[in-house]
Simulated assay, not measured.
Amino acid sequence: MRILPLCAAAVAVAALLAACGPTGGTAPLVSPSATSSPSASTSPSASGSPSTPATHPPIRKPPGRTQPPPAALESHQGTVTNGVEGGCLILNAADGKFELIGGDRTVLRANAKVVVHGYRTKGKMSHCMQGTMFQVVSAQPAS
C-alpha cells in the first residue's frame, strides 16, 4: 500500500528536477546553420589548423517592445484632461489631441496647462483610444 504513494512522489520529484534544468527540460536552441549546413563542419583554414564554427544561438530582439525616439522631438502646448478610460491623460492642443504616455505626473494632471516634448509612437496598443499616442520625454507648466 505504501508503494503507490512513494512511486507517485518519486515521479513528481523527477518531473520537477527535469523542469529545473538550464533549458527548462527542452533541447538547447542552436542556430540552424550551426547544425545542418556543410560550412558548419570543422575544416582546415588557410593556416592549416581546423576552425570551429560558432554555436551561439541567434540574438532575438523582442518585437514591438522598444522604439528609439526620432532625431527631432516634437513640442505641443495645451491643456491636460482626463481620458474617458481611467488612468488616461489627454493633451488638447491647438494642433491635435494626444494621449500622453509617460512623463512627470506631478506636472501632467487634469486641467494643467503644459508644454510637452516627445515623439509620436507607432505599433503600440492602448486602452485609452483617444488621440495620437505621444511618448513624453519632458513636460513643464506652460507660461
Score class of each variant (00 low, 15 high):
56 H>F: 06
82 N>R: 13
139 A>C: 07
89 L>C: 03
9 A>Q: 04
133 M>F: 07
86 G>D: 14
6 L>R: 05
51 S>C: 05
54 A>F: 04
31 S>Q: 10
55 T>W: 04
27 A>P: 03
119 Y>V: 03
93 A>F: 03
44 P>K: 15
126 S>G: 11
109 R>P: 01
46 A>R: 12
52 T>E: 10
39 S>H: 10
93 A>D: 02
102 G>T: 01
118 G>V: 01
4 L>M: 10
3 I>L: 14
113 K>R: 14
91 L>T: 01
79 T>E: 06
44 P>N: 13
111 N>Y: 04
61 K>W: 05
12 A>P: 02
25 G>T: 07
21 G>T: 15
22 P>L: 10
91 L>P: 00
45 S>E: 12
92 N>D: 13
111 N>E: 10
106 T>V: 11
16 L>A: 15
75 S>C: 03
89 L>Y: 00
55 T>F: 09
58 P>G: 13
35 T>E: 07
94 A>N: 10
43 S>R: 14
132 T>R: 05
47 S>M: 10
140 Q>D: 10
24 G>E: 03
56 H>Q: 14
69 P>G: 12
34 A>K: 02
46 A>Y: 09
105 R>W: 02
58 P>C: 07
3 I>W: 05
81 T>M: 05
142 A>E: 06
98 F>T: 00
96 G>W: 01
116 V>M: 01
117 H>S: 09
83 G>T: 06
141 P>L: 14
